[in-house]
Simulated assay, not measured.
Amino acid sequence: MPVPFEALIPLGLITGFFGVSGILFNKLKTSINEGQPPRYGMDRWDRVMMERDYRLTGTQRGQSHQAAAPAGFSTNSAWNLEKEHL
């Protein structure tokens, strides 16, 4: 029994919309991660290194090629300090 051609139009629309939405979602995730693929399964070490990269370069995915850290890196610590209450 042949398939009526009227059924192919909705099938094409549904397939097309799923394809377009998948491509747009992939481009959005890539643009959020500065053109690199998203990271999965990050542990504490990865998060600490991302925080260090953010302090060095200003972006979480950016890395510096310089051998020495900038002068301000020693003072912009990630630790939050509290004032002493006496």
Rank of each mutant, 00 (worst) to 15 (best):
L8V: 11
V3F: 06
T30H: 09
S74Y: 01
M1I: 11
L56S: 02
I9H: 10
D53R: 15
L13V: 15
N26R: 14
L56Y: 01
F73S: 04
G12Q: 06
N80S: 10
G16T: 10
S74H: 05
E6A: 14
F73V: 02
P37I: 03
A67N: 03
N33P: 00
T75I: 04
Q66V: 11
F5S: 12
R52A: 04
M50S: 14
N76F: 01
G41K: 09
V20T: 09
L13D: 04
G12A: 15
T75V: 07
F18G: 03
A71P: 01
Q63W: 08
P38R: 08
F18Y: 08
L81M: 10
F18K: 04
A71E: 14
M50H: 09
F17E: 04
D46E: 12
A67R: 10
Q66I: 08
I32P: 01
R61D: 02
L8I: 14
D53H: 14
R55P: 00
P2F: 05
L11I: 09
G22P: 00
A67M: 09
A78C: 03
F5N: 11
I23V: 15
L13P: 00
N76W: 02
R47P: 00
A78E: 07
D53Q: 14
E84C: 01
I23E: 05
W45S: 12
Q63G: 09
A71C: 00
R44Q: 11
R39G: 00
T30R: 14
I14Q: 07
S31G: 03
E51T: 11
E51F: 06
S74K: 13
L86M: 05
P38T: 05
P37V: 05
